[in-house]
Amino acid sequence: MTLPSRRAFATAAMASLLVSCGGHGAGQDTDTAERPRSTPPPSRPSAETGGPAEALKRSVPVGIRIPAIGVDTPVMQLGLAADGTVEVPPIAADDRAGWYRHSPTPGQTGPSVILGHVTVGAYGEGVFRHLARLRRGERIVARLENGKAAVFTVSTVRTVAQADFPTDEVYGNVGRPELRLITCGGPHTSDGYRDSVIVFAALSSASP
């Protein structure tokens, strides 16, 4: 009499244990199955762009220094030529770079554009003769009229055909302080240099 009841209790207990274990397992599966569904929408990485330095107040550039290619030159101001192209520094023995005055000053939000010659006719090589040698990570220091200096880090150096000059990439909105250095490059033809060399850089720091 006691034996059957014990067996019955034992089987009942075993059955309930087994079933309850199975039930939990299924529940976990659904959990794990749901997790991946909820995790995919991480749209944060796209927003995680490295924190650039804070933008500076407007101050006209008066000089530029690029230690990697031995450039240390005063900077003049340039406007638009009659044909709608950007003015370039004069062909002179004391060649210098020029800042396009309709672009932001270095350190302001937006693409600040500085031009320089690769060659200056009878005077030989221009101030940006070695611009194409710049590499990613190298520094460019723009001295400003207010005594501050905006330090930029090269992100890209591109050589593009002048016929396909990327106007939007050079002058388009960027939402942070950036710098563009432009000169001519590539082989020289009867119409002049075939290419343009463009250095893209972003503000990394500012010194007082």
């Binding site: 192209t85 031009l115 010659h117 221009g126 001519c184 490059g185 002049g192 343009s196």
Partner: peptide
């Protein structure tokens, strides 16, 4: 500006 700058005399 329009076009590429002529920075190579």
């Amino acid at each position: 500006p329009s076009g590429a700058p002529d920075t190579g005399a």
